[in-house]
């Protein structure tokens, strides 16, 4: 089982967290075109490689954070809580 380094709690079993998938910016709902919005809703980069994604530490600190994960090797790096700067957190063991 993947060990996911929560910026608060430290490395945790992936099963202790919820996976929210690829991070992507939300378009302004008042001005966006259907194409913009549906790109946001449905289209994904889905790379075989590094991916910035969002996790929720649902049984631990209950914080959402983003992290980069290599979708082929499972490596994880630079977990970030929303609003904080990259590298400001501890928690990498890899």
């Amino acid at each position: 089982m993947l060990l996911v380094p929560c910026p608060n709690c430290g490395p945790r079993n992936a099963a202790d967290l919820s996976y929210n998938g690829e991070s992507h910016a939300r378009p302004d709902p008042t001005t966006c075109t259907p194409e913009d919005w549906r790109t946001y809703l449905y289209l994904r980069d889905n790379p075989s490689g590094w991916l910035r994604e969002s996790w929720y530490c649902s049984s631990g600190c209950r914080k959402h954070f983003t992290i980069e994960r290599h979708t082929l090797t499972g490596e994880l790096r630079t977990p970030i809580l929303p609003g904080s700067k990259p590298g400001a957190t501890k928690g990498e063991t890899k």
């Binding site: 380094p5 608060n8 709690c9 430290g10 490395p11 501890k90 928690g91 990498e92 063991t93």
Partner: peptide
């Protein structure tokens, strides 16, 4: 080394 890192990264440790 791994234990040290784990402990350093884990709030409750």
């Amino acid at each position: 080394v791994v234990r040290h890192r784990l402990q350093a990264a884990t709030a409750r440790a």
